[in-house]
C-alpha cells in the first residue's frame, strides 16, 4: 500500500488520482469527527469537503513531520470550531417535544434512550469540551495529538477532558439516562 506521505507528494505534483485515494482512505475519520461535533449531515459534509480542499491546497507545502491523519484531524477540528464560533448554535440538552420534529430529532427519538441521552448531553457541553471528548473517545487521539489539533498543551487537554466528563455525567444523570448513579459529592 502506498503511504500517505507518498500520496501527498504525488498530489503536490497535481496527481488527482492520488488525491482520490487519500480522500477515500481518510473520509471516514473526517466524517466521524465533523458529524459527531456538528450533529448535522449537511454541515458535516461541507466541513469534510472544505478540509480535503485545504489539504489539497496545502500539498505543495506539506512536509511529512506529522502523520497525515493528525494533520487532517487538525484541519477538521479547527474548521468545526470556527464553524461553531460563527454560527453560535443553541445547544440542546434535551430533545424538544415538538409535533413536527426534524429528521435528526426523529432519528434520535427512534434510537434507544441511552444513545439519545448521550447525544443530548454532548450537545449541552461547550465546544472545546465536546471536541476534546470526541477526539479522545471516538478518534482515540493522545492528549498530545488533541493538543496539537486544538492548539492546547497536553495538560490543558487533560483538564478539559476531566471537566467535560464530569459535565457529561451530570447532564446524563439529570436526564436520567443510562441508569447513572448520583454524583459523588466531594
Amino acid at each position: 500500500m502506498i503511504t500517505d506521505e507518498a500520496l501527498m507528494l504525488a498530489v503536490a505534483d497535481g496527481d488527482m488520482e492520488a488525491f482520490d485515494t487519500l480522500v477515500r482512505r481518510h473520509q471516514q475519520a473526517a466524517w466521524s469527527t465533523a458529524f459527531r461535533f456538528l450533529r448535522n449531515e449537511d454541515d458535516a459534509r461541507d466541513i469534510v469537503q472544505s478540509a480535503f480542499i485545504k489539504l489539497l491546497e496545502a500539498a505543495p507545502r506539506y512536509r511529512p513531520t506529522a502523520a497525515l491523519k493528525t494533520f487532517l484531524t487538525c484541519i477538521v477540528t479547527r474548521l468545526c470550531l470556527d464553524w461553531v464560533e460563527k454560527k453560535r448554535p443553541v445547544a440542546m440538552a434535551v430533545l424538544p417535544e415538538t409535533a413536527d420534529p426534524s429528521p435528526s430529532q426523529e432519528r434520535a427519538m427512534l434510537d434507544d434512550g441511552l444513545a439519545a441521552a448521550v447525544r443530548g448531553a454532548l450537545s449541552a457541553l461547550g465546544a472545546s469540551q465536546r471536541m476534546a471528548l470526541i477526539l479522545r473517545h471516538y478518534e482515540e487521539l493522545s492528549y498530545a495529538q488533541i493538543g496539537e489539533a486544538m492548539d492546547l498543551s497536553p495538560k490543558a487537554v487533560e483538564r478539559l477532558l476531566a471537566r467535560g466528563r464530569l459535565a457529561l455525567r451530570e447532564a446524563m444523570e439529570k436526564a436520567g439516562g443510562g441508569g447513572f448513579l448520583p454524583l459523588t459529592r466531594l
Binding site: Q28, F35, F52, I53, V118, G177, L181
Partner: peptide, 30 residues
C-alpha cells in the same frame, strides 16, 4: 464505575453512514 458507564454510553451512539459519493464530490470540487 460511573466513568466506565459513561464510556459505554458514548460507545452506544451510532454514526450515520458517509453520504453517498462524498469522495467523488470532494475530488470534483478539488
Amino acid at each position: 464505575e460511573a466513568l466506565n458507564r459513561l464510556h459505554r454510553a458514548l460507545g452506544s451512539d451510532p454514526l450515520p453512514p458517509i453520504p453517498m459519493d462524498l469522495a467523488g464530490r470532494i475530488v470534483l470540487a478539488g
